[in-house]
Design a protein around this nucleic acid. Structure first.
Lengths: 235, 235
DNA sequence: ACCTGAACACCGTTCAAGT
DNA sequence: ACCTGAACACCGTTCAAGT
């Protein structure tokens, strides 16, 4: 009975598996960790419990539902956005400032690629949380001659471009069978330019194209600024 | 026994519930219907069976797994892309042709907003399926003076922009609590331009901004063309 | 106060059984 | 040949029970 009640690794004084007590914060952090590692679809209350050394049902003492866990994770990410700062001081060139902003935001997205859909549903709160990050970029545009409305459109367009693009890249988790050489050949036979395009998919992967798209957007905004300056709207 | 074996609505000659026999095609079409109506996440073999008046297990005679059903739906969508045609003849203005292409593709995306992630994972096959649709747009760009590589980048950039944007919009299914007036006020106090931006979210919804972004992209491409013409690469 | 086991209604899938 | 019921390992969640 002695040997049964307590093996050599179990004593009366130390619980068999000492672990920090459960609390809301530890639960949410574990959830974000699971999402980052395995994706939102793999998050389950049972797995989350296991990650914390506890039965799934124990979580319900701290959190009313799985939906609430996801809300909490969203808030965790907003807190992270609130810590975003412009990566460097204004350069004096609005194009450069916009690139810096876009890349800093892109890097923030890449920290939690599997959780991007969480802040897609709450853009207004995302902008509000990161207000200190966006204000200088907007100010630089206004200083460069953009009307406030146009500055806002410019920042929204660039931010949405980055978020949407990162969301698209994150959606491509299941790497699928690419076209075979003979299939590409068949395309090329009738549609040479599309054949050229399909071949470019390997040479110029999403990452490079994302940067190209950013440059195209900024060039387009420069054009808008010039046009607006040539023919001002109100007075 | 007579009364038990056949009620007034049941005869020996007509089966109690005549329904077309199951087959792969009917299963895939029902699956796409369910996805369009309720989203990919709501698709289950049991629901799919119910939609077809059959137990879930019956489906496995025609389809090896749920994954295979999803593959089949993807193929259904590719078949639809293969039916895409340029909405109108080339206008003689590459900018206009590009807008026409982008809007036609956007409309195609909107036919199956909940299935967009399916062809995000197979871009090469999507382009190959819609080769007849893309070739004229590419040809128009080349005719306008774009190098083939640049024409390809231009079409990919615009197509990706539309797909990513539609994917982002589709991700916002759960409409969440927007910022309250006092919360916007708090943002405005310290960050007036971000406050302006947040207010613009209501006035200029995603749809309008998507069109603005498209125009900015095309303006940027015009700039690229002019630059390339001024300083040609090779020769 | 904190955790758990059993249960319920779901899920994908297998397999032996029905007609 | 075609469909189904029971079963298994999963899921979120409830509730009564354990310590």
């Amino acid at each position: 009975m002695d040997a049964y009640a307590a093996g050599p690794w179990v004593t009366d004084h130390v619980p068999p598996r000492p672990r920090p007590p459960l609390d809301r914060r530890r639960i949410l952090e574990a959830a974000l960790r699971l999402i980052d590692e395995h994706g939102l679809g793999e998050l389950s209350m049972r797995r989350l419990g296991a990650e914390l050394g506890v039965q799934a049902m124990s979580l319900y003492r701290y959190v009313p539902s799985k939906q609430a866990v996801i809300e909490g994770v969203r808030q965790l990410i907003f807190d992270e956005l609130a810590r975003l700062r412009p990566a460097q001081a204004a350069t004096g060139h609005w194009e450069e400032d916009l690139f810096v902003m876009a890349r800093a935001f892109r890097d923030a997205c890449r920290r939690h690629p599997h959780a991007l859909s969480l802040f897609a549903t709450d853009v207004d709160r995302a902008y509000a949380a990161a207000a200190r990050f966006y204000e200088p970029a907007l100010a630089a545009l206004v200083a460069a001659g953009f009307a406030p409305d146009d500055a806002v459109d410019a920042v929204r367009t660039v931010t949405r471009y980055v978020l949407a693009t990162e969301l698209l890249v994150a959606a491509v988790t299941t790497m699928r069978a690419p076209l075979e050489e003979d299939e590409i050949g068949a395309v090329e036979a009738d549609h040479p330019l599309v054949g050229h395009l399909v071949r470019s998919l390997a040479d110029r992967p999403p990452d490079i194209l994302e940067e190209t798209g950013l440059q195209v957007l900024v060039a387009g905004l420069r054009d808008r600024l010039a046009t607006a300056a040539a023919a001002p709207g109100g007075t």
